[in-house]
């Protein structure tokens, strides 16, 4: 069921380097969990036994941004936290993708107050939004699939890869 079954008896295959790189990248996303509040607990539930994100190759959780390529912003982001989030986003190497998980990160949710950022997409680019308060683990898994779709469409000479 692996690669060898596709190659057949000949022992080689032809593909574009672009596709090969994207194939590797999308099946080995290393998430940086930027968890602050309730969504972080659901994110942890996604990483643990029952929902098991490692089935889709995204279980290598790195708590340092310099080793990750998928930023999962999960939870409320407030005035004090936004500079931290931006700093972490800056520290991540290219290429990188961002999931904004939950209503609070995406649009402020129920908290339309003086200290809450009304959507992190005003201040950092976001690729995939996950609705829900908090989203169920299945929703987060779906968002990871969406990111994988985006990754498989990337071009090597686009600005995304730091060229």
């Amino acid at each position: 069921m692996g690669l060898e079954s596709m190659i057949g008896g000949e022992g080689f295959l032809t593909t574009k380097i672009n596709d090969l790189v994207n194939w590797g990248r999308k099946n080995a996303l290393w998430p940086m969990p930027f968890g602050t509040a309730c969504c972080a607990i659901e994110m942890m539930a996604t990483f643990s036994g029952r929902y098991d994100i490692s089935r889709f190759g995204a279980e290598v959780v790195r708590f340092t941004p310099r080793q990750s390529d998928l930023l999962i912003v999960s939870g409320r982001i407030c005035l004090k936290m936004m500079p931290v989030l931006q700093k972490i986003y800056r520290q991540m190497p290219e290429p990188k993708w961002v999931i904004s998980m939950g209503a609070c990160a995406s649009c402020g949710g129920v908290f339309d107050t003086y200290t809450m950022i009304q959507g992190v997409d005003q201040f950092i680019p976001v690729d995939v939004y996950v609705p829900g308060c908090p989203p169920r683990p299945e929703s987060l898994l779906d968002a990871v699939f969406e990111v994988q779709k985006i990754v498989s469409g990337e071009k090597l000479d686009s600005g995304k890869h730091g060229s």
Partner: peptide
Amino acid sequence: IGFLHTGFEKL
């Protein structure tokens, strides 16, 4: 602290 201050009491 205060990195998750949400303003519950004001709300």
